[in-house]
């Protein structure tokens, strides 16, 4: 079962690397924010996974909760900022 969790982490890592393509070559700024958002969500899952693998989940789950809040607020702030500026 431990091995399955590590494998899940590796697969998620692969998806994150695929997401980096959009961050690097996304045609507009919004594509990049979108990719950052997706990577943030995967990181939340990754944090809980790490907690389960290291058997310290009661600590990691708080970090994951905070991180999901930060990812959400970060997306909102990006959206607000770029709509005011009208940057392409």
């Amino acid at each position: 079962m431990e091995g399955f969790l590590v494998g899940t982490g590796l697969v998620l890592g692969g998806f994150v690397v695929a997401g980096f393509y959009r961050i690097a070559f996304g045609p507009t700024i919004y594509d990049r924010i979108l990719a950052v958002n997706l990577i943030g969500i995967m990181t939340v899952v990754f944090l809980v996974l790490m907690g389960l693998i290291y058997r310290r989940v009661e600590m990691f789950v708080d970090i994951a909760l905070m991180y999901s809040l930060l990812a959400f607020i970060g997306t909102l702030i990006f959206a607000k900022y770029f709509s005011k500026r009208g940057v392409e």
Binding site: T28, I33, F72, K80, F82
Partner: peptide, 13 residues
């Protein structure tokens, strides 16, 4: 909500 905020900012941009 985050989806909506991003879309709105793109559309208004």
């Amino acid at each position: 909500t985050a989806t909506h905020a991003l879309l709105r900012s793109a559309f208004e941009g």
